[in-house]
Structures are given as C-alpha cells and as structure tokens.
Design a protein around this nucleic acid. Structure first.
Length: 277
DNA sequence: ATGCCTGGGAATCCCAGA
C-alpha cells in the first residue's frame, strides 16, 4: 500500500497541481494539509473524479486536513485532536483504512517563538503525545502522517545556524518530537535513508528550491507493527518545481499490511527520488 | 532586524505561513 502526505497549501488554488500529481503518483491513500478552504468549498467532485473517496475537516482561510483513499471512502475515527474542546483549528483527522489507523495532522507552526503561538504549538504537542500513546496501546497498526512543522535534527535543514531560534527547530520543539518518537514510533523516511539529505519543504523566498535550501518537516511515524513491512519511500521533488505549486513536496511510503503477508519488494526508484545533485 | 513569495479574504491591504 502506497501512502502519501502532502501539504498542498490551498486545495482549490493548487487543484491542477494536486490532480496532476495524483494522476502520476497514484497513491492508495493520501493525507492533505493546509486545505485553506471552508468545509463546503472542498473540491469533492474533482477528487471523486480522480478515483478517490475523501473525508475532510475544513476551516475558513487557514488549516484544514483531508484523507483520500483510492476506490473507497475512509472510515472516520476522529475529527480534531482530542484534549481541548476550545481548540477550533482543523488540524487533525483520523481514519481506519484496511486495518490501519491513519492520523493525518497539521501541527501548528509556532512562530514567532517565544510567544502565544509557540505556547499553542507546545500545548498541541502535549495533546498529540497523549493521543499517540493511546493509539500505540491499542493493538492496531498506526501511521501518523503529515506536516509536523518540526526539523528533527541538524541533518534535516540546509543551514542549521539560521534556524536555531525558529519554532520549527528550537530545542523545545525537537525535544517534543523526540519524546513522541520515543513512545516507540519509527520515523519512516529517516529509517529508510539514514545518511541522506531529505527535504520536504523549500521556502518561496530567496530562490530556495533552486538552491536546495530545504527543510525536512513532513513525516511518517509508524507503530512497531508496520516497521517490518516498510519497503520504500521518497519525496516527489519534481512537484515542487511545477507552476503555481505548494512550498512543500509530497512524500510517500510503501508499506505491506501486516495481515496480508509479505511486503512489496523495494524499488530502484528510491535512490533517484532523493538525489539532489 | 526585515523582506524576500504566496493564498485567502476582504477590500485594493492584512494575516499567516515556515
């Protein structure tokens, strides 16, 4: 099963890019973030026409998350991250898909830090810790996928020194991510490619993509059930070079379902997708 | 220290993103 996650940065504004990528990549499951569309302005017709069922949680102007499944409709298990009824941001949606629980998340950016937005980010992280632990304890395979707005290590940023005070890279943020991972999650792309530079986001400013001045902030976290079946993964970098594109690139993994026996064989595509020169 | 760019929404500028 091929699972992708993509911060689309406006699902209506980027619809041509999204459809072009879906047609080319044909993932079985897709998590989207930053829909930037109210609930009633999600382009459900175009998504259905592309062959996908979908659940989504919209919001006027900002945020918004969706889960797409090819040839079926996801069974929703959560809408909104549990733990704070006052939090109205659309940043989490969860579904049961082929015996897997899939959480699609858009973690708050948190800038400027310190400040109230950074406090919100850390509080959101606390709630994610609690919910993730609960999911981990259930005996169901789990994938947490999305835009975490976390640069996990110095290896995940083109120039660490310029990001030390940023909410994506501050010690509190990295510690919160590490604390989450230590519950037993596997950072799928880093595990597949322990020594590679992997970036998933390039700023619109400063010609960042051409300079490969990127960040790795989109992630897949796998529960232990799924690690043995992790066969491949990559970043669809070319999408970031298209016209009127998002500042993120889609990322994907190929995982075997634990109940369906052997995972698919690793492909030779892997090295090509990650090469930067 | 700030803008560089971009989308959304309201109004032809502001907010937010990372």
């Amino acid at each position: 099963m091929k699972i992708a996650t993509y911060n689309v940065n406006g699902v209506n504004g980027r619809l041509p890019v999204l459809l072009r990528w879906l047609a080319k990549s044909r993932p079985d499951v897709v998590c989207l973030q930053e829909l930037k569309a109210p609930q009633d302005r999600f382009p459900i017709g175009a998504i259905n026409d592309a062959g996908y069922g979908v659940i989504w949680h919209g919001q006027k102007s900002w945020n918004g998350v969706a889960i797409l499944t090819k040839g079926s409709t996801p069974v929703e298990t959560n809408r909104g991250l549990p733990g704070d009824p006052e939090d109205l941001h659309s940043r989490y949606i969860e579904a049961a898909i082929d015996g897997i629980t899939l959480g699609c998340l858009y973690l708050p950016n948190g800038n400027p830090a310190p400040g109230p937005k950074f406090d919100y980010k850390l509080r959101w992280f606390d709630r994610l810790h609690k919910h993730a632990r609960k999911l981990m304890k259930a005996d169901t395979p789990v994938i947490l996928a999305g835009d975490f707005n976390v640069i996990p290590t110095e290896m995940d940023v083109y120039k660490p020194a310029s990001w030390v005070d940023d909410a994506l890279f501050r010690p509190e943020t990295r510690a919160a991510f590490e604390k989450l991972v230590k519950q037993g999650w596997t950072d799928a792309l880093r595990t597949l490619f322990p020594n590679d530079r992997i970036y998933t986001f390039w700023d619109y400013f400063r010609n960042s993509f051409a300079r490969n001045a990127g960040l790795r902030i989109d992630h897949f976290l796998l529960s232990p059930h799924l690690v043995a079946g992790l066969a491949d993964g990559g970043v669809d970098r070319e999408v970031r070079g298209w016209e009127r594109t998002s500042d993120h690139a889609p990322i994907w993994i190929e995982v075997g379902l634990p109940s369906l026996g052997k995972p698919p064989k690793a492909s030779k595509k892997r090295a090509r997708d990650l090469r930067h020169d």
